[in-house]
């Protein structure tokens, strides 16, 4: 059962209620559409190890409730997230209009460096579309986000959304834009990475001590 991995990343899924956040998580982890969903109460939790540029990355995913009454509670879970899927429903303009607020929340409460992927979900419902692709992609550009449209129903672009987000974080790591050794970035080294680090002859004490060793899943 032991999965070894190089990095452990905390992800958030945020966005209005009913946009399909829980369905995206389920599709990503189980590979199927879940049609018995009810509104999430608080948060639902899932994890999966994926391969990103030759590395094993374990994603710890917090799927938050979109309903207003949970807003203050779920915000307290943002801290330490490295990435977020910011989800809206392409058939709901209301969910699109709320994006900026969700984004502000994520950047201020998680980390200013949080990697956010904008996900326009339910793209299978082309006939009911209220938010044109171009409009959303302009919004993404203006706010420095990567944009993707997905369908939790058909599975289209679901894995891609999570992988894109993980890739962005690893790129930032490699370019030195973010530093995994600093606390609060939502990145921890896994066993495999630590071994590699040791083999490289770098010190594992000191700065690494705030990167807890997470050896099993």
């Amino acid at each position: 059962m032991n999965e070894s991995y190089n990095y452990l990343l905390k992800f958030l899924i945020i966005g209005n209620a009913g946009t399909g956040k829980s369905c995206l998580l389920h599709q990503f982890i189980e590979g199927e559409f879940r049609n018995d969903t009810t509104h999430t109460i608080g948060v639902e939790f899932g994890s999966k190890v994926v391969q990103v540029s030759g590395k094993n990355v374990k994603l710890q995913i917090w799927d938050t409730a979109g309903q207003e009454r949970f807003r203050s509670v779920t915000r307290s879970y943002y801290r330490g997230a490295a990435g977020a899927l910011l989800v809206f429903d392409v058939t709901s303009r209301e969910s699109y209009n709320a994006l900026l607020q969700w984004l502000t929340d994520a950047r201020s409460l998680a980390s200013p460096h949080i990697a956010v992927i904008l996900v326009g979900n339910k793209k299978d419902l082309e006939n009911d579309r209220q938010v044109p692709f171009l409009e959303a992609s302009r919004f993404a550009q203006e706010n420095d986000l990567t944009f993707i449209e997905s369908s939790a129903l058909t599975g289209e672009n679901v894995e891609e959304a999570f992988l894109k987000c993980a890739r962005t974080i690893l790129c930032k790591l490699e370019s030195g834009e973010i530093d995994a050794e600093r606390a609060g970035q939502g990145i921890q080294f896994g066993d495999a990475q630590l071994r590699r680090v040791r083999a490289d002859g770098r010190k594992t004490g000191g700065p690494l001590s705030n990167c807890a060793v997470c050896n099993t899943s």
Binding site: I41, V43, F70
Partner: peptide, 17 residues
Amino acid sequence: NLVACNPSFKNVESWSP
């Protein structure tokens, strides 16, 4: 009641206020 009303607690771990 909470458990009875939320079949979606199945198959996931939830953290609920």
